[in-house]
């Protein structure tokens, strides 16, 4: 059958996309621009959720504000589109009242790391059992392309018309330093690896963080010489180099050179709820509980 006949059939019986059962199809087409990478990440997330075998009634998606924040509005699960930057604390309350469920936080770089930065560092520190999907498009897309905590030095945005004077965050290094127990980064074109990684993150117990470098041709690419969606998608992918298990502070994104992607951190640590249960069941002794054999350093030797 040719595409033409498939299309012809669409008029009478619209074809059913394999992910339609997870989509609020009555809201499609979605608001994301032509060539925006968020849709790819969203598809990857839905694939990973289906493959995880998690009961769908026990999966919730929480978003903040911004382009990526609209993900919650298109997924046909219990989904919460909260205030700007506050997806993580909202998700904290949601998760802790139903620990048996899985909470996915999907939001953008500006939402999670600028206005929501304080919540991010504390959610990671607590190792809350949340999966955080951060679509990094290097700017604020929803408001038309302003500089974000991810905008590379010198990149043009509407609020940095001569180039951004700021240095960007390395989100993966930040996440790892704060205590995230699973940290990975891909570009939007690493679809199979991304889906696999999201699957691992969903199975991970603790704070998992995945950053996805995604094209925003309309707001970011247009002002930075790469206005074609395909060129921008390819630009990120072609410059990426996979370095799994590298220390996250070495996993730099150098747009003049290479963009390091891969899975950087995957360790098991007690979650916040594990700790809460432990201390409240009296299993933790008085602080400080110093083992007798720990030698006390001699000050004069340290100072020498």
């Amino acid at each position: 059958m040719s595409a033409k006949t498939a299309g012809g059939a669409a008029a009478a019986h619209p074809p059913v996309h394999p992910q339609d059962h997870l989509l609020r199809t009555d809201r499609l087409p979605h608001i994301w621009c032509t060539g925006c990478g968020i849709g790819i990440v969203f598809g990857s997330l839905m694939s990973a959720v289906m493959k995880s075998g998690l009961p769908l009634n026990d999966v919730a998606v929480v978003s903040g504000i911004g382009c990526t924040g609209r993900m919650a509005g298109y997924i046909k699960l219990d989904s919460y589109h909260t205030t700007h930057g506050r997806a993580l604390p909202f998700a904290t309350g949601l998760k802790l009242t139903r620990p048996q469920g899985k909470v996915i936080v999907a939001s953008g770089d500006g939402d999670l790391f600028a206005i929501g930065g304080n919540h991010f560092i504390h959610a990671a520190r607590r190792n809350l059992d949340l999966t955080v999907i951060c679509v990094n498009n290097l700017n604020y897309g929803m408001t038309g392309g302003q500089q974000a905590p991810s905008t590379p030095f010198g990149a043009k945005t509407t609020t940095s018309p001569s180039g951004s004077p700021d240095q960007p965050f390395n989100f993966c290094a930040l996440a790892a330093a704060c205590g995230a127990t699973y940290v990975a980064r891909w570009t939007a074109l690493h679809i199979r690896l991304l889906t696999q990684t999201i699957g691992e993150a969903l199975a991970h117990r603790g704070f998992s963080f995945i950053e996805i470098l995604a094209p925003c041709p309309t707001a970011f690419g247009r002002r930075n010489k790469i206005r074609n969606p395909l060129d921008l998608l390819r630009f990120y992918y072609d410059r990426s180099v996979v370095k799994n298990k590298i220390s996250p502070d070495q996993a730099v994104m150098d747009f003049q050179g290479n963009l390091v992607v891969g899975k950087f951190v995957d360790v098991a640590k007690p979650t916040w709820l594990d700790g809460y249960r432990q201390v409240n069941s009296g299993q933790v002794g008085e602080w400080p509980e110093v083992a007798a054999e720990v030698p006390i350093p001699e000050k004069h030797l340290l100072g020498a």
């Binding site: 929480v62 219990d78 919460y80 909260t82 205030t83 506050r86 993580l88 604390p89 909202f90 998700a91 904290t92 309350g93 949601l94 998760k95 802790l96 009242t97 139903r98 304080n118 919540h119 504390h122």
Partner: peptide, 17 residues
């Protein structure tokens, strides 16, 4: 929580939980 903004957001989340 880390501040009152987070506290308020968390109780909304808990209520929906």
């Amino acid at each position: 929580m880390e501040d009152e903004i987070a506290s308020m957001a968390a109780i909304l989340g808990a209520s929906w939980g």
